[in-house]
Simulated scan of single mutants.
Amino acid sequence: MERAGLDMRVAALVNDTIGTLAGGRYSNQDVVSAVILGTGTNAAYVERAHAIPKWHGLLPKSGEMVINMEWGNFRSSHLPLTEYDQALDVESLNPGEQIFEKVISGMYLGEIVRRVLCQMAEEAAFFGDTVPPKLKIPFILRTPDMSAMHHDTSSDLRVVGKKLKDILEIPNTSLKMRKVIVSLCDIVATRGARLSAAGIVGILKKLGRDTVKDGEKQKSVIALDGGLYEHYMKFSACMKSTVKEMLGEEVSENITIELSNDGSGIGAALLAASHSQYLGVDESFSTI
């Protein structure tokens, strides 16, 4: 900003998850959590201040605080990791970190599919006697390509065939091959979607919103932003149905997952404005 000669002051530094939560909460007080499902993933939620054991200062007047979870770095022996996930992690730029992100986010889903296809080509001659050279290139198969193949409804799965030809330079594939690839996309996407749903249910459980207490029905809204959720329809549909499955019909009636278009940008602007107003700053110049 200084190099560009911009007369600006940074009023708030906000990550996209907190921005989405702020934007969602501004328009709807029932928003209790925000989740990003895009290239990466994260979640944040509104917690009762007295329920935060690490906080030792004065409690805020509202009695609430925002928790930025950084849930992409969650790891557990209960996560259903495969040899493909482990190999991807070891060869990644941040081995041992962001394990949850590596099984549910848009940066990695297509790569997992590529790794499975590569092993099928090497060990079962899935594409013939030779392994297609392009198939050995990490991240050449992106999640949007995977999504396009997964959503292919044509009788001959021509979209799958075109993706294999254009991206992996595999010109001749049978319908049987294409069906196997669609099934593989479904397996990887379903696992990611169900794990994402489990994370959301975990937040609701922490807040005590996973049950109906004394007949009282609390509305809970999850603000969700990110291209993976917005554009990969089979992923988002599976995630929603899994949340409903895990919570049951009665509780899930009061749980809403809402798409928040650029909620992060709007929320960041609102936080910057409210912070400036709180400080009584002279806003004769621009604020970001």
Rank of each mutant, 00 (worst) to 15 (best):
K240G: 00
E250Y: 02
M239D: 00
S252M: 02
H231A: 03
Y229L: 13
G267D: 06
E249C: 08
L259Y: 12
S241D: 13
G263D: 02
E245L: 14
E245V: 07
L228V: 12
M246N: 02
E245R: 14
I257A: 06
L259S: 11
Y229F: 15
K234E: 09
H231E: 09
G263E: 05
E253I: 03
K234T: 08
E230L: 11
E253Y: 05
S264V: 00
M233G: 09
E253T: 02
E249I: 05
G227W: 07
H231K: 13
A269R: 05
S260M: 08
L228P: 10
T242H: 10
K234C: 09
A237M: 10
K240Y: 04
S236T: 03
C238E: 12
I257L: 14
T242Y: 07
V243M: 03
M246A: 03
S252C: 04
M233S: 14
L270H: 02
E249Q: 09
G248D: 07
G227I: 05
A268K: 08
I255K: 00
E258D: 12
L228R: 06
A237Q: 14
E249W: 01
G227Y: 04
I266Q: 06
T256A: 12
C238Q: 11
L270N: 01
K244E: 10
S241E: 12
K244S: 11
M239G: 00
Y232P: 09
D262A: 14
Y232E: 15
A268Q: 08
L259K: 13
E249P: 02
E245K: 15
F235K: 02
E230R: 15
I266T: 11
G226I: 09
E250C: 03
T242F: 05
N261D: 12
S236D: 07
M233L: 15
E230N: 11
T256Y: 13
